[in-house]
Write a protein that binds this DNA or RNA. Structure first.
Lengths: 243, 243
DNA sequence: TTCATAATGTACGAAATGGTACGTATAGTC
DNA sequence: GACTATACGTACCATTTCGTACATTATGAA
């Protein structure tokens, strides 16, 4: 039972250069954010059951005690990490500034952005995958995420309506279903890159191939949405007359 | 140290109706298959780290000992379950009998089948999701899976080539990339149904909506693959002249 | 200054969990 | 029937892992 009792004089030797005494600084916001940052990475990498609270604590500036102080238990911590993941990828409306573009260009750009945005946030993708493995049980508990994403398709809706009005787009599509199609292609590109690459011995993540796939996705969506007339122009490679 | 030693006369009371004595029957194949069946379900439901060997053992007719006897450790068991999942969904070439159909019809049918096939095998989808969470580390160890899927796109390749020859399809597509597009749409439909349904308050799994989505996917792929001429026929709703 | 409350650190515990030691039974071969 | 390799069961162990008891310090208000 040799318990070393080095309470005093035991300094982490990291944050205090001037004061060598143990002058603890209370900084709840920082501690919370620190935990969240580490937890999000751990959960997204290893899943809810794979992540270890002790490991999260170690990678933190603080202790395991604080995790349970700010978040009741592992599941709550996971839920908060999930929420933060969703929040982190949510881009502000109008950030793309698409409303001034002709519908055809606007849609092409939105699809291109969505595709790239998914690539830029692999840990978000992983969190969503993990959450789906859990049948969306935790997401269902979060009214926060629901409200957050409620307006996620407003931008697409505006573009689509403009396109229908201008005659560039067919008028029989549902923006939600269109969003589903775009999401599917963008999501799969990140989520399944490992298995797909392995099985077909094809380096899907290689920049060249990513460019090819992005081109396919954009073109595929455009061809699906364009009206008959716009499609003919598209097939003939003619520029948009409005441009 | 009270150890109850009820070795004899301790019968599970399940499998033997006639013989009341403990007449154990050696049946390696059955034991192995039993373990595999349970393990596959457990892993696909809870992931590699979430699944519990003890729980798998409990749901088995046999004991934990046997799991380690036939499979060295948890990871090997997972790998075998992964392999079995891939094997289970692999359908035989020609099973669909598409080669006698005109290319346009054949492709539409292949897409429809792929979409439905994914729906019919949710645990396979889950295993693939889980494996991607693990960066495809285990799949990489299995030459079995790779050889299994090598010919997975041969059917699509044949159809595509026929379509190019007949003039129904454009000639600038790569069958592998085409397969990627079809897979993405079919996979996402199962993998992300929980989060997507929740976020947009839309019951994606409802039969009506599944029909709608399947229609979108088929039509989207067709529009992407059709040649200019075939596209015009398609847009005008005219039947395939070859039919 | 006093005092209450929020914030933090250390050590520990109970249960879960992957894996194994050890012994027994089965079945095919000679 | 004797023998041996394979198949199988029970109890157990070492470690991991989530979570907490308990003590202490910081901070702001009265």
């Amino acid at each position: 039972m040799t318990i070393l009792n080095n309470k005093t004089q035991q300094s982490s030797g990291r944050q205090g250069v001037t004061s060598r005494k143990r002058t603890r600084k209370n900084d709840p916001e920082r501690v919370r954010a620190d935990i969240m940052r580490v937890a999000t990475r751990e959960f997204s990498e290893k899943g809810l059951s794979g992540a270890r609270i002790d490991e999260i604590a170690e990678k933190t500036q603080t202790s395991k005690r604080m995790i349970y102080y700010y978040f009741q238990d592992k599941e709550t911590l996971y839920l908060r990490a999930l929420e933060q993941s969703y929040q982190a990828v949510r881009h502000k409306e109008g950030e793309l500034d698409l409303d001034h573009l002709p519908p055809v260009d606007a849609l092409a750009r939105l699809v291109a952005f969505t595709f790239g945005h998914h690539i830029s946030h692999p840990d978000f993708i992983r969190m969503v995958m993990i959450e789906n493995i859990h049948h969306g049980r935790y997401l269902g508990q979060s009214e926060f995420i629901q409200s957050l994403n409620a307006g996620a398709i407003e931008e697409l809706e505006r573009i689509y309506r403009r396109g229908v009005t201008s005659g560039d787009f067919r008028d029989d599509l549902d923006p939600l279903e269109l969003h589903w199609l775009i999401s599917a292609l963008s999501f799969f590109n990140v989520s399944n890159q490992y298995t797909f690459s392995h099985i077909f011995n094809w380096d899907q993540a290689a920049p060249d191939n990513q460019k090819i796939l992005q081109g396919h996705v954009i073109d595929m969506v455009m061809r699906y949405v364009l009206s008959r007339e716009a499609m003919l122009r598209h097939l003939d490679g003619q520029p948009d007359p409005q441009a």
